Computed example of a mutant assay.
Amino acid sequence: MTRPKDLDPSSNPRALLGCELRHARERKGISQEALGAPLFVSGSFIGQLEAGTRRMHLEYAQHFDEVLGTGGFFARNCEALAKSKYPDHFAEAAEMETTATTIKHYLPLLIPGLLQTPAYSAALFRSYRPLATDDEIKELVATRMDRGRLVEDPTAPLLWVIMDEAAIRRPVGGSAVMAEALRRVADLARQHRIILQVVPFSAGAHAGMGGSLKLMEFTDAPTLCFVDGLDTGRLIDDPATVARHTLTFSLLQALGLSPQESLAVVESVAHDYEHEEQHP
């Protein structure tokens, strides 16, 4: 049997690797369920790997090479594709953003990374990493801005953003930085690039107070949920857990101001920050 060539990681690598997995599995006459069983993953998960909607981890790749007799092909390419400009806990979630049809994101304290301005991002990164060099901060900001181009792409996913009022009231980087950041959020809402909601302080206790939440929906794959904290993050595909977090987002939608009211609040707070900058 001819051994498949190593893939070029620059050309839609996840889909290419998935295609090779499907061909190798079919040549061996093994079902998706049978291939996934020793790894304690479902046949549908193997299907997602083959479709390129999930990331192949090294332990899976090594198993595939052993079972399918591919001479280390999947392990070699998996290691090459594992190199990411994002932290390990976020790398797969960042990849999933680019293939999602809908992203629903709630944050209690921050403007979402996809919507941030360079100055806002720089202020955040500096607060996280007080001893980093200026060049290191610039590199982190550049990576975040590159990811943010997803929102400006006309083929980008539907992005539904819910922010707690605390996210727009906390002056990250000072008044000028916040005014610019909120104006960007408002501009994206006015341009119909995002659906925006704000959960006001007057809503009192709500289901999202425990932390941030991101739901990603796909055309040919189940919904995924990403939850994160300080230098940690977890991509969840368990149906029951995803359903519970989906309900949480729905509860936040019900509590939040309407998109029109939310836009008015964001623009009003941006105006207040601009006034503070002009009259310190």
Rank of each mutant, 00 (worst) to 15 (best):
148 G>Q: 10
148 G>F: 07
149 R>T: 15
150 L>K: 04
150 L>Q: 01
151 V>A: 12
152 E>F: 11
154 P>L: 13
154 P>F: 12
154 P>A: 11
155 T>K: 15
157 P>F: 09
157 P>N: 05
158 L>C: 09
158 L>F: 11
158 L>H: 12
159 L>W: 03
159 L>I: 13
160 W>Y: 13
160 W>N: 07
161 V>K: 05
161 V>H: 04
162 I>T: 06
162 I>H: 01
162 I>P: 05
162 I>G: 02
162 I>R: 00
163 M>L: 14
164 D>F: 07
164 D>I: 13
164 D>V: 00
164 D>C: 09
165 E>I: 05
165 E>M: 07
165 E>F: 08
166 A>M: 05
167 A>M: 03
167 A>F: 09
169 R>Y: 01
170 R>A: 14
171 P>C: 11
172 V>C: 05
173 G>S: 07
173 G>V: 07
174 G>T: 01
175 S>I: 03
176 A>V: 14
177 V>R: 00
177 V>L: 09
178 M>V: 05
178 M>K: 05
178 M>G: 09
178 M>I: 06
180 E>K: 13
180 E>D: 15
181 A>D: 03
181 A>T: 02
182 L>S: 02
184 R>P: 04
185 V>E: 02
185 V>R: 02
185 V>F: 08
187 D>R: 15
188 L>W: 11
189 A>C: 11
190 R>I: 09
190 R>A: 15
191 Q>I: 08
191 Q>L: 14
191 Q>W: 11
191 Q>E: 15
192 H>Q: 12
192 H>K: 14
194 I>R: 03
194 I>F: 10
194 I>E: 00
194 I>N: 00
195 I>P: 00
195 I>K: 05
196 L>E: 00
199 V>P: 03
199 V>W: 02
199 V>I: 12
202 S>H: 12
203 A>G: 06
203 A>M: 13
204 G>T: 04
205 A>C: 08
206 H>N: 14
206 H>R: 08
208 G>R: 00
209 M>N: 01
